[in-house]
Design a protein around this nucleic acid. Sequence first.
DNA 1: GTGGTCTAGACCACA
DNA 2: GTGGTCTAGACCACG
Lengths: 133, 133, 133, 133
Amino acid sequence: MLIRIDPQSPDPIFEQIAFQIKGAVARGDLSDGDKLPSVRELAKDVSVNPNTVIRSYEVLEREGVILRRQGSGCFITGKTSMLNDDERKRQLSLLMRRTVTEAYHLGFSSEDIRKSLDVGLRGVHFRKEKRKK
Amino acid sequence: MLIRIDPQSPDPIFEQIAFQIKGAVARGDLSDGDKLPSVRELAKDVSVNPNTVIRSYEVLEREGVILRRQGSGCFITGKTSMLNDDERKRQLSLLMRRTVTEAYHLGFSSEDIRKSLDVGLRGVHFRKEKRKK
Amino acid sequence: MLIRIDPQSPDPIFEQIAFQIKGAVARGDLSDGDKLPSVRELAKDVSVNPNTVIRSYEVLEREGVILRRQGSGCFITGKTSMLNDDERKRQLSLLMRRTVTEAYHLGFSSEDIRKSLDVGLRGVHFRKEKRKK
Amino acid sequence: MLIRIDPQSPDPIFEQIAFQIKGAVARGDLSDGDKLPSVRELAKDVSVNPNTVIRSYEVLEREGVILRRQGSGCFITGKTSMLNDDERKRQLSLLMRRTVTEAYHLGFSSEDIRKSLDVGLRGVHFRKEKRKK
DNA sequence: GTGGTCTAGACCACA
DNA sequence: GTGGTCTAGACCACG
């Protein structure tokens, strides 16, 4: 579980931590039931205040990615978003609109963008999950 | 040039404005040489503080999307990112990693994600530009 | 907007604040678009640290009850949960099981319990909202 | 006497145990004079630390649900709350206010809520007990 | 003025 | 040992 913080990033530290954990889950490096490093341990590793780690874990818990249990630690749930379908679709659509616009302004063609997405998708471990349509 | 602020969005207003202009450029609604509304005019249109509009224009200028000329106004440059190729590729890669991770946690399959990207791409007007890979 | 903290309560302060705001929304005392007191103001009113109020507001934002906008303040959204139906039903069922069990152990009959629920329901302002089943 | 711990639940283990015993009493699965499993036995059954079970039993004793007798074990008292009537009514009212508020924010109608309560009540075995209102 | 992030450090609760 | 809450106070970002 290697977390790296970029102090130059405009993104707050707690979000960087949370995102990297989400990335590890998406890649399959962390999965259902796995234990995260303790708050104090991770705080020491990345040299931030424990409160900042707690905040990251809070965010992840509210998104349903992890579970926090007093006295025992934090664990990956293996679940994805519990939002309703309208909201999930809305968020996906927003995300893609943003992505495409930014990629366009970086000067890439639609073919470049599609290829880059495929590269990204190859790194993700999709589970065979049943989800009601 | 229709800008709409979503008061429900967590994004700051200046970013929403900048992003919508970038979106208009990507769609081809605005192109090389087109003049943007004046700061005051746009501020009045969307009912925000002129300082907020100025900030949006600053962002766009820094990204090379527009050019601000003293006294005559702001114009679309029609150029994409001025970064070097390595940096552009790095940013595209980062962007896609982020996109894929978030989409995964929203509970979408790789097929859903690809389709959603295609929908996004369909809205963009790509120019036939030669650019080194 | 009167918030009262019970320092004796086992519930953390930030939850007490969040819950009272949810109560005000349910009663109709606060509705769509209404502005909440500023973080500093409320912190002063209830004599707690501003960070504690921020935390309450964070919770409410994540539940979709309010919106926080830098520079302008926090506002009621007027929306209810964005969770999917399975999760909503699961939570309602858990809530009711807990409620009934506790009420039973307080020594009340099913008739008492039903009446008490009705009293509670009378205080709530239900909107005519369309929600897909 | 089947106790099941939900590792997904945010509630502490000792509360889950205590609550499930209260639930069994409410359903009539356990009644006046029934003996609870010994601390060690139950701890082994649900794979938790004996201290955790002890804590659950302490909670139940404090609420009057069980009686702990040195050397002989723990027994269901069959009694409900020992609080005076004003306090009991106050607690019921608080409970219902909380329940209704949460159910409202989950997006349920008053009819949904009433139905869900009825479902919950159907699982409870009410005794014909005389108690002053 | 608004909200947001982070630190340091005290103290509490659960297993 | 684990996580959770709260305070005090510095400093940043948005409008």
